[in-house]
C-alpha cells in the first residue's frame, strides 16, 4: 500500500513508500479520501441559478465575461436541480412562488448548499408587502447570505468562495444521514401535488374527445 492517509498521521511511513516518494519527488498528494473528494467538489460546484428577479441579472453578469465565475470552477450552471449542488436564490420570493423554491431545493441531490443573494431573498428587503416571503430561510436552510440590492457580482463570488471553504470544512457524513438540510421526499403522498391551475383550456382537437369530467389534462403536472 503506497498511499498514506492522514487518518493515521503519527505512524511512520514505511521504507517502500519513502523510496517511492523520493522517486517521484513529491508529486504525490497525501490526504484522507474525504478531503480529496471535498477538494474535487469544492472546485467543481454546479450552481443551480434560481433567478427570480433583478438579482438574477447580476447573477448573469457574474457568469458573463467580465466577472467570469469559471475562474472558480462554478460556471456550469444547470437549470435542472438534479444536476446541481449549489442553489443560488437570486430575487424576491413571493408566496405564490414559495412552493417551487422548496420543491427545487428538495430535488437537489445531497450534499447541497444554498446562497441567498440579495436582501429580498435574505429578509424580504424593501418589499415588506403582503405577497412576499420575508426571508427565504422560512422555507429552506441557507448557508451564505449576501446582502445588497443587488449585491455586486464580486460579493456573490465571495459567497461562492465561502461555500468552497465550507465544503472543505464540512464533516463527511455517510450518505443518507446527511440530512442537515432536509432531504428529497420523492413521491410521498403527504407532499401533495402542485396546486392545480384551472387553465380554462378548452381546445377543440380533431379526433380527440375529452371525456366529460375527465381531468386528464389537469393531471399533466409534475406531481413530485
Amino acid at each position: 500500500m503506497g498511499v498514506k492517509t492522514l487518518d493515521q498521521p503519527d505512524q511512520e511511513l514505511d521504507r517502500q513508500t519513502r523510496e517511492d516518494l523520493q522517486m517521484v519527488k513529491g508529486g504525490v498528494i497525501f490526504g484522507s479520501l474525504s478531503k480529496l473528494v471535498d477538494m474535487a467538489r469544492k472546485n467543481s460546484l454546479w450552481p443551480m441559478p434560481f433567478g427570480l428577479s433583478c438579482c438574477a441579472i447580476e447573477m448573469m453578469a457574474m457568469v458573463a465575461s467580465r466577472y467570469d465565475l469559471a475562474r472558480f470552477g462554478a460556471e456550469a450552471m444547470r437549470f435542472t436541480p438534479r444536476q446541481c449542488d449549489l442553489m443560488i436564490v437570486a430575487g424576491t420570493l413571493t408566496k405564490k412562488m414559495a412552493y417551487a423554491a422548496k420543491r427545487i431545493y428538495d430535488q437537489m441531490p445531497e450534499p447541497k448548499w444554498v446562497i441567498a443573494m440579495g436582501v429580498c431573498t435574505t429578509t424580504g428587503g424593501m418589499f415588506n408587502a403582503y405577497s412576499v416571503v420575508q426571508g427565504i430561510d422560512h422555507i429552506i436552510p441557507v448557508d451564505v447570505y449576501v446582502p445588497g440590492c443587488p449585491p455586486r457580482p464580486e460579493a456573490v463570488i465571495y459567497a461562492v468562495m465561502k461555500i468552497q471553504d465550507q465544503v472543505m470544512k464540512e464533516k463527511w457524513a455517510p450518505l443518507g444521514k446527511r440530512s442537515h438540510h432536509g432531504h428529497y421526499r420523492g413521491r410521498d403522498p403527504k407532499y401533495g401535488a402542485l396546486p392545480l391551475l384551472d387553465t380554462g383550456v378548452k381546445a377543440e382537437v380533431k379526433g380527440y374527445q375529452e371525456e366529460p369530467g375527465s381531468p386528464t389534462w389537469r393531471k399533466g403536472y409534475y406531481t413530485g
Binding site: Y99, N128, Y130, P141, G182
Partner: peptide, 22 residues
C-alpha cells in the same frame, strides 16, 4: 383598508408544502 404587510392571517402565511421545515 387592507394593510400593506397583509392581514394577520396572510402575513405569516407559508405555503402548506413548505411548512414543516420551519
Amino acid at each position: 383598508e387592507y394593510p400593506m404587510e397583509g392581514d394577520d392571517e396572510w402575513r405569516n402565511y407559508v405555503p402548506p408544502e413548505t411548512r414543516e421545515n420551519r
